[in-house]
């Protein structure tokens, strides 16, 4: 993937939220999103939206301890 992730995050944070990088560490963290993007990319095709609308609360009920 040949993209400038720092620039991507900077553009998104500023354009959508009006927030600029507060320091150098913040840009370092933004650059670290390469691994998060890779993680999300690796999940593509593995899971389907099988519950629509998806409800986490319903899943808690469906899987709950029968004898609490």
């Amino acid at each position: 993937m040949s993209m400038d992730i720092k620039a991507l995050v900077k553009e998104q944070a500023e354009a959508w939220s009006g927030v600029v990088p507060p320091n150098a560490v913040s840009e370092e963290l933004a650059a670290g999103f390469a691994s998060l993007m890779a993680g999300l990319s690796a999940l593509r095709g593995q899971l389907a939206f099988e519950d629509e609308p998806s409800s986490f609360e319903a899943a808690l009920q469906a899987t709950k301890e029968p004898n609490p």
Binding site: L8, V9, K10, Q12, A13, W16, S17, V19, P21, P22, S26, L29, A30, G32, F33, L36, L40, L47, F49, E50, D51, S54, S55, F56, A58, A59, L60, T63
Partner: peptide
């Protein structure tokens, strides 16, 4: 700051798959 760069589709994807994964 960095977290503001995570797109909404990634967030919704993460939330919507929470129930099925559980």
């Amino acid at each position: 700051y960095a977290s503001l760069g995570i797109p909404a589709v990634a967030y919704v994807e993460a939330l919507s798959r929470r129930g099925p994964i559980l």
